[in-house]
Amino acid sequence: MSKDLRNYKLVIWRQASPQEKGGFEQYQVDGISPDTSFLEMLDILNDRLIKQNIRPIEFDSDCREGICGACGCLVNGQAHGPRQKATTCQIYMRSFENGDTITVEPWRAKAFPVIRDLVVDRSSFDRIISAGGYISVKSAKHADANAMLIPKPDADQAFDYATCIGCGACVAACPNASASLFTGAKISQFTLMPQGRVEREKRVERMVDQMDREGFGGCTNIGECEASCPKGISISAIATMKAEYLKAALSGRTESNASDGAM
């Protein structure tokens, strides 16, 4: 274990409820080992606050290894903090110098209302997925998995889009608070796979419409989303989404034109 212990000044957003106005508060946290993760540092701070009868800082986390997408806050203005391709839970205190001041805020977006402190409501993402982020197959007997060959490069690229963890960093980093990278990634995954092509028009139309309805902003190709994505998802997802949307509109096979009378 490292003997090198460090001290930090934390400036953290506190907001007791969605209705109340929030504000920054300052906390001194001393004696932190550089092998401590950022969230563990907050755990330590919280235990100290609790003993002083100060309300601890609420934040979401679960896997604490960068895969569930539960954690996420702006650290010194950067979504998920100073490291590229990492989530907040994957940040270690060795990334900060002894004596640093660290500012911590929740994701800021109209479509992600604050619940408490650093905890936000991201259910808008779930609603985008339920508008078409799936292939409509039942749990049943299907053709043998190897009956359908998928070229390895396509499968690999589909995976690169499917790796999205739904954390919301792309929205938080985007000056327009757009969810285009999130939505585009799912659409691109399915566009690359034969299984996904059957419903492609309806999917893209409904998902994009839902995204707009949730109050996310439009994409103006700034690229902050790609830079902040902990999984390194390529902004090409957004180009695919836009192209698919256009193609769908021209195809006449979208939801609004559905001939099977669905909905």
């Binding site: 998928i150 070229p151 390895k152 499968a155 299984q195």
Partner: peptide, 20 residues
Amino acid sequence: SIIDQCVAQGVPFAREYSGE
């Protein structure tokens, strides 16, 4: 059946160059 089900759902499993 699970593998067949997941492939039908579009799960991007690792593949060989043959596409299998």
